[in-house]
Simulated assay, not measured.
Amino acid sequence: MKTNNDAVWVGRGPITPSAQRKLELAKTHSRWWIAKWAKDADKAIYQVAKQPEKYVVNVKERTCTCREWDLCGIPCEHAVSALAHLCAKPEDYVSTFYRRDVYLWTYEDFIHPTNGDNL
């Protein structure tokens, strides 16, 4: 079931709709997390906390200790919180596998039909 919010971004963003839905959910949940910069030279490492939980996010390496960003390639709610601290767009940190242009390139050729088993 689509909501009014779905109509805003479906077919218009730089990433696929399924990745965008997951990212939008992470954005919603990220507002409860507080990101604190670890004072590293690259401004890449953050501790993100919502008591009693704490996670470490490395924006430069695109990792989070919850491992969700590492495993699926879409920033988790902790990473989105850290990216908000940097005033960065989370869409820019989604894996290239979810990019619309990569998706379209993957499926630009059609699959030729084949005969059935009886032939």
Rank of each mutant, 00 (worst) to 15 (best):
K2T: 03
K2Y: 04
K2W: 06
D6I: 02
D6S: 02
A7V: 09
R12H: 00
I15T: 00
T16R: 12
P17C: 02
Q20A: 10
R21T: 00
T28C: 12
R31W: 05
W32P: 10
W33G: 05
W33N: 03
A35Y: 05
A35N: 04
A38H: 14
K39A: 15
Y46R: 08
V48K: 07
A49R: 13
A49S: 08
Q51C: 15
P52Q: 12
E53Q: 15
Y55H: 14
V56I: 13
V59F: 06
K60T: 03
K60P: 02
R62I: 03
T65D: 05
R67S: 08
R67W: 11
W69H: 02
W69E: 03
D70G: 05
I74N: 01
E77W: 02
A79T: 04
S81P: 07
S81L: 05
A82I: 07
A82W: 01
A84I: 06
A84E: 05
D92W: 02
V94E: 00
V94C: 04
S95C: 11
T96Q: 13
Y98C: 02
R99Q: 04
D101F: 13
Y103N: 04
W105T: 11
T106F: 13
F110K: 07
H112D: 12
P113S: 10
T114L: 14
N115Y: 06
G116N: 14
G116P: 13
D117L: 09
N118R: 10
L119T: 15
